[in-house]
Amino acid sequence: MKEIVVISGKGGTGKTSVTASFSYLGGSSVVTADCDVDAADLHLLLKPDFGYSEDFYSGEISSIDQPGCIRCGKCADVCRFDAITVKNGIYRIDPLRCEGCGYCARICPPKAIINKERKAGKWQISHIRTGGKMVHARLGIGADNSGKLVAKVKNEARELALEERAEYVIVDGSPGVGCPVVSSLSGASFVVLVTEPSVSGLHDLKRVYELVKKFHIKAGCIINKADINPGQHQKIMDFVAEEGIPHLADLPYDERFTKAIIEGKTIIEISTGNLEDRLTKCWEKVRRLTN
């Protein structure tokens, strides 16, 4: 079983549209994982049935048991996150600032601070119309620990792929280079970099590829909106040639991407011809390079 991760550095380059297309083309040989847990959109295209759902707990959160509090203020002194405030002699912990380190609870003389598990979101396993299955999640409002929820979604997708004897796990990653991205890269067999020929697209591609190199993972590059700026397109081609990254496909600036999103379908389902061809060939290339 191989794991293919789709990322981009920059947001809005078309990761989710590409992931959904691969998922559709792969059918039942693929378990799809939406690891962009704090702005998950893949379900809008793949329409999962939300068959199985489970709460996700991660980390802790502290609160003060007011009757037990002797108002000594030691908790506020040790908190490095300015989460503990005092008003009219009453100490309170702001749940939006609390990191869950538990330091306050450890040093509270009357032991009046309680730590509870923090509900950080939900994750689901669904059937999708491609014939495959999908693992997805939703991070709670204001929740931290998106990296841990990403890891959870990936692990569940891997287990599911083994159970179902699926050949691939395809992961829709999040933008950026921080903790959710690091988490979605761990254990990957191949990375699909989706970029666009803009100064920002190239800048962000370079940074995220630096991260991919740290993990020693093979990668290929798709240039979306490829015809928007020929000069920038050439710069991306030069960059991938220099780094030895296979160029997987050029996709045109095309309103069918938006149309597919509006209709809640993959591009493969709404496009006959050119776009569908390119994506199909691209998927075949990805499979070849992954195996």
Binding site: D38, A39, D41, D144, P180
Partner: peptide, 27 residues
């Protein structure tokens, strides 16, 4: 930054006004 988790929370926490940019699609 994009998203809705901790980095965004930290960014908007002490803003006086939040301008949300979106596009007219289901995403």
């Amino acid at each position: 930054p994009p998203g809705t988790s901790c980095p965004v929370m930290e960014t908007v926490r002490d803003a006086d006004f939040v301008l949300l940019v979106t596009e007219p699609t289901p995403f």
